Simulated assay, not measured.
Amino acid sequence: MNNLNLILIVNLGSTSTKIAIYKDRECIGQETIRHESDDQFHTFSDIWDQYSFRRKIIEDYVTANGYNLSDLSLIVSRGAPVKAMNSGTYRINEAMVQDAKSRKYGNHPCGVGCTIAYDIAGELGITALTVDAPCIDELIPEARYTGWKNVYRKSFYQALNQKSVGRKLASKLGKEYEEMNAIIIHMGGGMSIAAHHQGKVEDVNNGLDGDGPMAPERAGTLPVGEVLKAAFSGEYTYPQLYSMVNGKGGIYQILGTKDGREVEGMISDGNILAKEVYDSMIYQIAKSIGAAAVTLKGEVDAIALTGGLAYSSYIVSGISKWCEFIAPIHLFPGENEIESLLEGALNGMNGQWPIQEYV
């Protein structure tokens, strides 16, 4: 390994900044800073306007832990929405940053995170890395086509956690990841249901664009005719409609909360609508698992549930009721993105994985 010592890891979400400092594998400090109630945060009209705000938070965190930026030897950021990539560890370079800024492939705060990492690393003369970006593309041709000419399904999902859980699941089963067939379901604000076939995600829904099951803040697949009526009704702007697909759709639009614990509280209090909507989400997840089983020709070694909602016994038991006949179900609750970023970065710096160049 290179003389690695102090590692800064950043993971920028829509309303949070997650930061961690490691000395090799020892965690020195880790914090999630929430921005929902921050008045300054809500003055930004675009995520790229947040650059200085987010960077100061990151720099202040390093200082608060008794270090200077000059003490850092490596910076790692969650990956940005850029063009299709292979799985693995990448150096954050100028081409990646410019593609993130272009918004051509999507627009997400993790693009700002990659840019901050790249800029600080450049100023210090050190390396900036990212691991298993959301735009990893291993889809088979059959998974790409739609019924519209020149409109294709895109591979965009929670790849960082999906791939990490895939490797953990394979180890638990006594297999190599490249030998395993599994269905992995990431359940957070959005959902991704992925068919992992011998080391590659050959089919997965794109929850950002409204594909797949309903989620706490995403609408999931909608009847296209109703969407067209809404689009041409004159009642909504494009940003308003898009927010109803991603950000303010799904459970949030129907029940007014994105918090699964609040929904389950409503159900406990006898709220019939909350129960029907939540059970419908579970049903849609189960149907997607069934579809993924078909893509694997029924040869499924295991099903894994991960993400924040995998802590919910209500959801886990509901999915099990529908799907346990397909394969044994394993739980890997939480997102564990910081740990996955660290592991991938160390694998790259150790030479266990190649450090790839984005072009």
Rank of each mutant, 00 (worst) to 15 (best):
Y51L: 08
V294L: 13
E226H: 09
S192P: 12
L241F: 00
C110T: 11
P223K: 07
E94A: 10
I136F: 05
N181M: 01
I136E: 13
S268V: 01
N3C: 02
E337P: 13
I28V: 15
D269G: 04
A304I: 06
R25A: 03
A304D: 04
G166T: 06
N350K: 05
N5C: 05
A286R: 00
D49I: 05
I7V: 15
A215L: 06
E138D: 13
R218E: 09
I92H: 13
S280R: 11
L341T: 07
G334K: 15
R25Q: 12
I272E: 06
A215T: 09
M191W: 11
N107H: 04
N68I: 00
G106S: 12
I326Q: 10
E142W: 10
Y278G: 01
F232I: 09
S87L: 03
G298W: 15
T146K: 09
T237M: 01
N2K: 15
I315S: 01
S45R: 14
N181T: 01
I267Q: 09
I57K: 14
G307R: 07
E262S: 04
E335V: 14
S155L: 05
V224N: 00
A194L: 08
G250L: 13
P328E: 05
Q158M: 14
A215Q: 08
G111V: 02
I326H: 13
I21S: 06
P141D: 15
S102C: 07
I267T: 14
Y51R: 02
Y283W: 04
N5R: 14
G348L: 06
F325S: 11
K101I: 03
D39C: 05
T15H: 10
A274M: 14
K229S: 01
I319V: 12
K172F: 03
